[in-house]
Simulated scan of single mutants.
Amino acid sequence: MKLLGAVLVSLMLLLPGARGNQDTVPCVFEPLRDNDQKFCRGDVEIIYPEMGDVSCSYIPKCQNFRQRLSLEWGEPRVRFPWARKDQKYVLVMVDPDSPNRAEPKFQFWRHWMVTDILGSDLSVGNVKGKVLTAYSRPKPPRYSGYHRYQFRIYEQPEHETIALSEEERVSLGTWDLKEFVEVFSLGQPVASTQFLTKNYED
């Protein structure tokens, strides 16, 4: 009788759909640790569809989240609840780990940059402003390990027009973020966060 039961269970597991939809298995978002966690400040939320807020966490591989992040989803909602209503802000998204964290010779790879964002919009997650760099999905190369995708929010100085040079517009990689911040007197970010992900095939 036990043998018959074992055979029936084995057959059930082989039948299509018998094991249920694995995409419905809950994913665990592991929080960042140590210095990676310390980068997160200001309660910034980075919200992607179906994942929700991924700030200060590793992107899990389950439910094809890494693949969809790299191939399907567009720009996230970025919400900074403490943004001042009439203040303008600059949002910068960069990968400091290109092509890998051990030898980041192409840092900071610019994935997104928007200026002239009103605080009233940013506080509710609407990134409306002047797009200097269109959003580029996170696509870490295979076998390059985890990459940090950092979001930095700066207060835009009053009456300051932020622009990229011709050279900067042509190349997204090997971008001197520090020099850019100094040229436009942006100072330290008023808020920052990041998530870590790796190639979805790894």
Rank of each mutant, 00 (worst) to 15 (best):
Y58E: 00
T133N: 13
K85M: 03
Q156E: 15
M113N: 06
Y58W: 11
Y146G: 00
Q67C: 09
P76H: 01
S55P: 13
K139G: 02
K88Y: 09
V131N: 05
D86A: 11
R148T: 12
L71G: 02
F151V: 14
E103N: 10
R77N: 08
K130D: 04
S123L: 07
A134E: 15
N126R: 10
Q67E: 14
H159I: 05
T115N: 07
P49S: 12
Y149S: 03
S57T: 13
I46C: 11
W109S: 13
K128P: 00
Y154C: 03
Y146K: 02
Y154F: 15
V54R: 04
F151A: 09
Y146F: 15
Y89W: 07
F151P: 07
I117L: 02
P104Q: 06
F108H: 13
E72I: 12
P76N: 03
P96D: 04
R152L: 14
V54I: 15
N100P: 04
R142L: 15
I46Y: 05
G74P: 08
P138I: 05
P49R: 07
N126P: 01
G125Y: 12
L91K: 02
T115V: 13
N100A: 09
P49D: 10
E158M: 13
V78I: 14
Y143L: 09
V127C: 10
I153H: 05
L132E: 13
L69N: 06
E160N: 04
S120H: 15
R77P: 00
Y89R: 04
A134C: 01
C62F: 12
R137E: 00
H111T: 07
P81K: 01
Y149K: 01
G129C: 10
I46Q: 07
D116V: 01
V124R: 12
V114K: 02
Q150L: 05
V78G: 00
R68V: 02
F108W: 14
R84C: 00
G74H: 02
L132Y: 02
V94K: 03
G119T: 15
P99W: 03
P60I: 13
L71H: 07
K61F: 08
R110Y: 04
T133D: 10
W112Q: 08
Y143D: 12
E158D: 14
F106L: 11
L91S: 01
V90E: 00
R79L: 12
